[in-house]
């Protein structure tokens, strides 16, 4: 599944970049995130709860931020698994100054498996979009 789009944040790129590397901020902004702990350089362990169609479940996963190019771009690699299946995502985020804030463009691939694929397929796309939207809304509220 391809995921791409963009969001506008009310901070300059430097501040946006900094916020998006801060585990405390990320844990507040990622929908369903219950814990995010740093395990190494740019590497985090994450627990999150996800609801999709008729089921919900906890994911245990890893978030890695790679190819850092502050304040312009970085890549985010997410892997998680839990009783409802697994998810893998890999996306490039590009930050551009725009209208006094920052436009964050994202472009990536996501893959799901297990129950989440078998019974949630038709909802995955919209759920992913909704979660991304919420993530950026929460991030914007960090002002």
């Amino acid at each position: 599944m391809k995921i791409s789009g963009s969001a506008q944040l009310p901070f300059p790129p430097e501040r946006t970049y900094e916020l998006m590397q801060d585990p405390a901020v990320l844990s507040r902004a990622i929908p369903g995130c219950e814990a995010l702990e740093r395990t190494g350089d740019n590497e985090y362990r994450m627990k999150m709860k996800m609801m999709l169609a008729s089921f919900s479940g906890a994911f245990d996963g890893k978030v890695r931020l790679i190819d850092p190019n502050p304040p312009n771009s970085f890549r985010m690699v997410v892997e998680g698994s839990g009783k409802i299946g697994f998810m893998k995502g890999d996306g490039a985020l590009t930050l551009t100054a725009k209208d006094g804030g920052t436009e964050v463009a994202y472009d990536g691939d996501a893959q799901v498996g297990g129950t989440i694929a078998a019974v949630g397929q038709r909802m995955i796309d919209t759920t992913a979009r909704m979660m991304i939207k919420r993530f950026f809304e929460k991030l914007a509220a960090e002002a």
């Binding site: 169609a53 078998a118 038709r122």
Partner: peptide, 14 residues
């Protein structure tokens, strides 16, 4: 089944 051999029609909604 998708290209990764995940069944994507796993209930009566699909």
């Amino acid at each position: 089944y998708d290209e990764n051999a995940q069944l994507v029609t796993g209930e009566f909604m699909d």
